[in-house]
Design a protein around this nucleic acid. Sequence first.
DNA 1: CTGAAAGCGCTTACAG
DNA 2: CTGAAAGCGCTTACAG
Lengths: 346, 346
Amino acid sequence: MAEPAHNSRGAAQRYGARPTMKDVAARAGVGLKTVSRVVNGEPGVTPDTMQRVQSAIDALGFRRNDSARILRKGRTSSVGLVLEDLGDPFYSSLSRAVEEVARGYGSLLFTGSSDEDPEREQELTLAFCARRVDGLVIVPTSFDHRYLEPEIAAGIASVFVDRPAERIDADAVLTDNAGAVREGVAHLIGQGHRRIAFIGDQPRIHTASERLRGYRETMAAAGLPVDEAWVSMGSTAPERVHAELSRMLDDPQPVTALFSGNNRVTVAALRVLTASSRPVALVGFDDFELADLLSPAVTVVAQDPARLGRTATELLFNRLEGETGPPRRVELRGRLIVRGSGEIAF
Amino acid sequence: MAEPAHNSRGAAQRYGARPTMKDVAARAGVGLKTVSRVVNGEPGVTPDTMQRVQSAIDALGFRRNDSARILRKGRTSSVGLVLEDLGDPFYSSLSRAVEEVARGYGSLLFTGSSDEDPEREQELTLAFCARRVDGLVIVPTSFDHRYLEPEIAAGIASVFVDRPAERIDADAVLTDNAGAVREGVAHLIGQGHRRIAFIGDQPRIHTASERLRGYRETMAAAGLPVDEAWVSMGSTAPERVHAELSRMLDDPQPVTALFSGNNRVTVAALRVLTASSRPVALVGFDDFELADLLSPAVTVVAQDPARLGRTATELLFNRLEGETGPPRRVELRGRLIVRGSGEIAF
DNA sequence: CTGAAAGCGCTTACAG
DNA sequence: CTGAAAGCGCTTACAG
């Protein structure tokens, strides 16, 4: 990064311009501490003095430098949020909820996307720690969070959300993924389906493998065999989903229903199913906008991203306010929303 | 907010625990400056000394406090993003693009939602300024940005995006809203429509009034009268859109086409149109996921939120790297995407 | 009611 | 190659 420009007088142009409390004190003819009192609304200043200080503040365009304040005070009143992709609707709802709660506690929010890259997650998280955020809300992507141990020991609160921490014991707020999938798959079985496909995200992602587990358990409980050709885990890129689903549909013994492992898979699958001649039942994991307007409308197992974010952030601030006790794990239930696509009977 | 807990020894529990460079120096038996050199990878340290310092760092779990560093250096390597709603897909795409560019310049991102409340915009923006962000990217909602003048004078770069600044001269990256609407409305006229409705956001929002202007200009240019009953500006809450559109459709002389002023209006309108017995043409402002899967698929005038964010942030960093010159205004073109709903002829 | 001194944890500018 | 002193802009603890 470029350094700030300096002018010929050798003073930093950009930041040297900024008046400080010392400048205000000099102009108002008072001590530094008096300015500090006025700026922070502390009592014990004559109305007359206060007036003089305020005039100096206005004249100079002074604004307190919170970086300096933070250094002295300890608390930064900021929270870091690390997630997979700020641009994804699921995470943006979650983010907004985190923001609202943090705001209620007077905290500002740093956000960053890990892009499902463990190294990037770590880099971001530690950068937030270096800024001394009071706490972290993390949608983790890495397999080892021991890198956070010194930070946590030093007092940075952290709550994991959507997925649990790996190799450390930490607060986590999750959806009961396996349970939610069980409900969705059982629903398909209830409609008479026997050959049910499952297309999910990369198996190394905790939620993805949990959801797969829910699928397998439900099939097994119903005494239905699972042909491994019906199961596909990997990238949620549309091309891959298209290819896999097409393969399953073109089989001489095609699947008659699909459970899709997240909203990206659902959207990609919809494009294939719309083009398909044979009706195929679909239940998707995660709700999405307009699901009710498609034909057929899409049956989903919905998570509540805002609630995940809100719950996690409340937990974070409880910790910051001194709540001790062992790490907590909160599980939220998914909710089956019946709309049509999941009720296409076999 | 609660103050950090203090223990009975009177030391700050949370932050007192944190080792500093001084602690590292003491443990390694070197001077403070040597630690600083090692931490920052500066040259001129014996491998042996470096080794000793590194051991001390690891043993103590030291991480440089960037708040302190920032105070001394001037630059904070952070950017503040203020927008309407982090949870809205349009803005979350924009945010992600801002994040990517900022990351490329080594900057962290503060984000905050104004919720279309001018006071909240100002509060957030000035809070970011107090943290001494290097620059601001703002989707403005207030009618007067003179509150930013001292900050800008003091060197905080700022770029407005999606909507221009009011009452100050500042860099802005916008979509040519009126132009894009003209294209969409002309398209409807081309399909034979004469009674075309326009439902938009609150008229005090710049983009909303610009889009309305585009509608009126196109109708006028085509020599078509506009019945004021066809025009409705206000909240984009689904209930209001439902009521207004229903009113227009139930009229003895109903509208035969609708231009919807943004994605929230489009979504709300779709629910009404789906239930309508008579086919009504629709062109929406802003593209949205799955628009192509609805029946009919939805014709839109698309903006590129990621490009808006990227362009604005690039401009911001150009300024931070010393580009002077008068405020710039960049206008991006909208793009008509023909999918079906806009081609329902009269 | 008011203010001078010390210190938060770093970097800068300088000297050895 | 190494380090002591001063300072970034505030707040804290204390004295008057």
